[in-house]
Amino acid sequence: MNLPRSIAARRALGLAPALITVAIFMVLPMLILLVFSFLEADPYGGVEPRFSVEAYIQLLYEIDFDDALVFNPIYLGIIWRSIFLALVATVGCLILGFPVAYFITRQDPRMQNLMLYLITLPFWTNQLVRVYSWILILAKDGVIEQPLKAVGILDGSLGMMYSNGAIAIGLVYSYLPLMVLPIYASLEKLDFRLIEAAHDLYADRMKVMREIITPLAMPGIIAGCILVFVPSLGAFIAPDLLGGGKKLMLGSLIHLQFASSRNWPFGSAIAICLLMLVMVALMVQARSAAKRRAMEAGR
């Protein structure tokens, strides 16, 4: 067997299958989604091939009985809830994850490896199953309520399920490893002598954390925040199972439009909005990465 002689031909041959697959089944569908968002809905599912910006108008306004556009805050509220809950989840992951990422770097290598394994493991297990297990915990008469009732502290239900709080817990739980791992990666590179030097120069523990550890972990913190924020924004499972379909987020709203409401253009428009938000988040990260590279380039 012989490989093509020219390196360019070999590159093309190697890359083409993967790139074409992604282009046809990923990029092209995204473009179709963009086109769909500017078409009219077919009430039986799918689209009518007529240009319309109605899907985008529908995000902000509804048409009342007199055919007049009336401001409708429902969808804006859902977008806001998505952003808000994604932010809460991001901050929650950061607060929960940062001390742990730091703690891991202070362990010996064997222990570090074990802890990283334990953190990665849940991430690769089925997300549906993991979120579902929170139903067992939070549900009426679940793991938390049942013993409280048995002892007689609780009467009735705490109503923990189907709340923003339950969704936030589910989101934090789903994406926590994505916060810990990049922060760990940047803290692990931190030269411990800098901490010694800062203490030597009269900084106490809190000042060392604020002046040295946090700024130097910033690339990892930003990467972790983006990695948690982006999937939280489009999350479907956590709001669907723990929000009970009552507290909608962007992900569940999109699903609703394609599944039961059968308004594909509207669903497409929301998906496009979601992608825009994701792009903004990624641009923020790209800029911070570029800044960091520029700083390191002086070396």
């Binding site: 569908p29 995204m30 489009g234 999350a235 992608l275 994701v278």
Partner: peptide, 13 residues
């Protein structure tokens, strides 16, 4: 790309 966007895009395709 968020999974839900991939999902509906692929469905549309």
């Amino acid at each position: 790309v968020p999974e839900i966007a991939t999902a509906v895009a692929t469905l549309s395709f």
